Every structure is written in structure tokens, then in C-alpha cells.
Computed example of a mutant assay.
Amino acid sequence: MDGTQRLDKWLWYARVAKTRSLAARLVADGHVRLNARRIETPAKGVAPGDILTIALERQVRVLKVTAPGTRRGGYPEAKLLFEDLSPGEVAHE
């Protein structure tokens, strides 16, 4: 693997969306920006260092990709895939 991963798959692995099809719809409906550019292609590749801005129903999340996912695990595993840069978020370390 070259360090890139499909955007919809990464969103699912990072537990941003409950299913991969919901992750794909989130992207296709224009609710995701990759490095400040609106993305509508779920197959777009993301890599460590990319910044995702995701407009969810009740909040906007800003996530910095730190790693590609290998599977959808629990939240402790998922949070290793990103750094949360969302406004108002406090780093928990």
C-alpha cells in the first residue's frame, strides 16, 4: 500500500460514518472537503497529512489523517487514524 486509502473507506474505519455506504453518500452529497476542496468522489484517495472538513448533522469536524485504516475496530483503534482539529475540541492525551 502506498499510504493512500479510499475516502469512503477511511471515513468508515475512522468511525465518522456508521456504514461504508453512508460514508460514500456523505462524500457524494458534498459534505466533505479534502484540503479545503469540496470532494464528491468517494474513491478519492486520502493520505497521512491530509485535512478533512466534514459537515455532519449537528457539528463540523476537522480531522487530520495520521494513518490509513486496516479494519473497522473500536473507537480507541479508530482515533489512532486521525488528529481532531475541530473548533472547540480539547486534545485528550
Rank of each mutant, 00 (worst) to 15 (best):
D29K: 02
D29F: 03
D29V: 00
D29P: 01
D29R: 03
H31R: 11
H31I: 01
H31N: 12
H31S: 04
H31M: 06
V32R: 01
R33L: 13
R33M: 08
R33C: 03
L34N: 00
N35G: 07
N35T: 04
N35D: 14
N35C: 05
N35S: 05
A36L: 10
R37A: 12
R37L: 13
R37T: 11
R38F: 13
R38Q: 13
R38A: 10
R38H: 11
I39D: 06
I39Y: 06
I39V: 15
I39F: 10
E40K: 09
T41H: 12
T41I: 13
T41K: 14
T41C: 10
T41V: 12
T41F: 08
P42H: 00
A43I: 01
K44G: 04
K44Y: 13
G45H: 05
G45A: 13
G45T: 01
V46N: 02
V46A: 02
A47R: 15
A47W: 12
P48G: 04
P48D: 07
P48T: 06
P48S: 07
G49V: 09
D50R: 00
D50C: 08
D50P: 03
D50F: 02
D50Y: 04
I51W: 05
I51S: 07
L52D: 03
L52E: 05
L52P: 01
T53K: 07
I54H: 02
A55N: 10
A55G: 05
A55F: 10
L56E: 12
E57W: 07
R58P: 02
Q59C: 06
Q59T: 14
V62T: 13
V62F: 08
V62G: 03
L63S: 06
L63W: 07
L63T: 05
L63G: 00
K64C: 12
K64L: 14
V65Y: 07
V65R: 01
T66W: 04
A67H: 06
A67G: 09
A67F: 05
P68R: 12
P68Y: 00
P68D: 00
P68A: 13
P68S: 10
P68M: 13
G69M: 06
T70G: 12
T70F: 11
T70P: 00
T70Q: 10
R71E: 13
R71F: 15
R71T: 12
R72D: 11
G73N: 06
G74N: 08
G74C: 01
Y75G: 04
Y75Q: 08
Y75N: 05
Y75F: 14
P76K: 07
P76N: 08
P76F: 13
P76Q: 10
A78P: 07
A78Y: 11
K79T: 09
K79W: 08
L80P: 00
L80R: 13
L81S: 01
L81C: 10
F82Q: 02
F82Y: 15
F82N: 01
F82T: 01
E83S: 09
